[in-house]
Computed example of a mutant assay.
Amino acid sequence: MTFATLALVVALGVAGPLLALPRRLHLPVILGELIAGIIFGTTGLRILDAEDPIFVFLADMGFALVMFAAGTHVPVRDPAVRGALGAGLVRAALVGVVAAVAGWAVAQAFGIGHGAIYAVLMASSSAAIALPIVDSMRLSGPPVLALTAQVAIADTACIVALPLVIDPGNAARAAVGAVVVAACAVVMFLILRYLQKTGAQRQVHEVSEERKFTLELRVSLVLVFALCGVASATHVSIMLGGFAAGLAVAGVGEPRRVAKQVFAISEGLLAPLFFVWLGARLDLRELGEHPQFILLGLALGVGAVAVHCTTRVIGQPLAHGALAAAQIGVPVAAVTVGSQLGVLVPGESSAIMLATLCTIVIATVAASRLAAKAPV
């Protein structure tokens, strides 16, 4: 990768905010970034080489920070959300059971033996998508609290489950790796909480703010990349490492200034770079060569929304169920890891990303309807 290519990638990342600019549409920023990558990557003009090692490494950094942000978005310290954990757990469990049946059915219908992968994809939610939508549209009330708990539980469970189902032959190794990453995250949380209780964190904060050292930001990045290093060493996706680091930081409370600094690095460069890279590596021409995968993508996307809407039978409004179906981290990891391992067949990666876009579009529409009905 050259500086000229890097400049092009950063410029393409601006397509995200431009496409999301009309407020009435409520389009997610990543949509424009993915489309820009698709146009300039393997599917379109083929100007961007998604196999470039430097491009891949920078994209991995972006993915780690995307999952870190998702972890920090989980409101583990909010007493109201903790009180809604019971309802959230029941709903996530119901979705998981229905998704297991739906995943098997889709796999059988298309003759692909990936029923377990499809089940995890359909059951997954995304705190990185759903919670910012909730905040931006100022949705509130008991149903939203239960939704928040449900999304957090489903997101965490599916992130842990994906490595186990995508490579069943090494499921034991993946399980051990997940336990190691979780244990490191717990140790990280305990150390951070100790520093907070002793006042050391406050002292570092004051010195850093006064001297412009950005020490807390540097420490946060060390924690994220260190845990991703542990994940890689134990043959687990960096998705789990980034997410676990985010949960550890969320457990003690991320300082607002640090959150803004991490947001600037992530959303200003690395996250857009990752989504442009992801779009560039997708070959949507495969969908033309294998048109049945268009139907697979629609089946997975609409199926995921339908699966989440089954919680209507236990009292959750349909719009909240559709919002909980929004996905990003788990499908992206499935495409990334599945492609690396050679697990996915040609066209399947594109089908999974098509399904992801379907869930985001439907969740955005559902959230817009909720916002329109909310009292002013």
Rank of each mutant, 00 (worst) to 15 (best):
G253W: 02
V207P: 00
A280V: 12
T356H: 04
D60R: 08
Q316L: 13
L65I: 13
V98Y: 02
A244H: 02
T5P: 11
A70F: 01
L270S: 13
L227Y: 04
F189G: 01
A171E: 00
C309A: 10
K373S: 15
P168Q: 08
I360C: 13
I328Y: 12
L31Q: 05
P375A: 14
E267Q: 10
Q150L: 12
E267Y: 14
V179Q: 05
F225M: 05
L21I: 05
L131H: 01
V276Y: 08
A127M: 12
P143I: 06
A250L: 07
R281T: 12
A130P: 03
K373A: 12
E210P: 07
P375L: 04
R256E: 12
W104T: 07
V120E: 02
A355M: 07
G315E: 00
P28N: 13
Q196V: 04
L282P: 08
V258I: 15
R312T: 14
G115A: 06
A226G: 09
M1S: 11
I54P: 05
T148N: 01
V160D: 00
L215W: 03
L341F: 01
L296E: 10
A128Q: 05
L48M: 08
G303M: 02
I117F: 01
V165G: 00
L131V: 08
A102H: 08
V207Y: 04
R46W: 04
A123F: 00
Q327F: 00
G279S: 08
L18Y: 08
L65D: 11
P143R: 01
A161L: 11
A183T: 04
F225V: 02
P375Q: 15
L217Q: 01
C358R: 00
I159T: 04
L27P: 03
K212R: 13
R24Y: 12
L284V: 10
A363F: 08
P17I: 08
D283A: 11
I54K: 07
V9L: 10
S126M: 00
G315Q: 00
A306K: 09
G86R: 05
T198Q: 10
P375C: 07
V151A: 03
L58A: 06
M61N: 06
L354E: 13
E51D: 15
G288V: 12
Y118L: 04
V307C: 09
K197H: 11
A109N: 06
Y194E: 04
W277K: 02
V134F: 11
P291G: 01
L300P: 15
E289P: 02
A371W: 09
V222M: 12
Q201L: 06
A366R: 07
A70D: 06
T356A: 03
V307D: 09
V181D: 02
G16Q: 07
R173Y: 12
Q316I: 14
L12K: 02
L31H: 06
L89Y: 01
G329R: 04
P132E: 12
K212A: 14
F275M: 10
D78C: 05
